[in-house]
């Protein structure tokens, strides 16, 4: 009967809440992050695995490396091209990608990924500053 105004109010509240992403981002540009490749990485030209694989599955690779090193003390990694690398975040990955803030954090912050690498590993780029 005279409840129409309450129902309309509730419906409007729902629609405003539902449209949250639209008004929250209003007028903000959200450019895709652009992780900076260091000179060393640019010089090397390729990572231990193809770029598309690294983009999507690096966490899996790092997990496998960790297990291999910590559980089995095996540090050699041979990629499909036959090239050998040492399994080490500190000495292999961070050797090229030497700036956490300019490389790792770019995408992780963008996608709200909370990595726990740095619970144990040291962010060298920070230490030197």
């Amino acid at each position: 009967m005279n409840d129409k105004k309450y129902i309309l109010g509730g419906l409007l509240i729902f629609i405003v809440l539902f449209a949250f992403p639209f008004w929250f981002n209003l007028g903000k540009a959200a450019p895709a992050p652009n992780p900076v490749l260091s000179e060393k990485a640019k010089a090397a030209g390729k990572c231990v695995m193809p770029t598309e694989f690294m983009r999507a599955e690096h966490m899996k690779l790092l997990g496998m490396w960790r297990r291999s090193v910590v559980r089995h003390a095996k540090r050699e990694f041979i990629n499909p091209e036959g090239k050998q690398y040492t399994m080490s975040l500190q000495n292999t990955c961070l050797n090229c990608h030497d700036n956490k803030a300019k490389f790792c954090d770019k995408c992780h912050d963008y996608a709200s990924v909370d990595v726990y690498c740095w619970d144990c590993h040291i962010d060298k780029s920070k230490g030197e500053e």
Binding site: N25, A29, A32, R55, A56, V113
Partner: peptide, 17 residues
């Protein structure tokens, strides 16, 4: 199967902005 999450957010952010 894994996906490139950064590209996906690029797409979804494109939708809302």
């Amino acid at each position: 199967t894994k996906v490139d999450i950064t590209s996906i957010k690029e797409l979804t952010m494109g939708l809302v902005t």
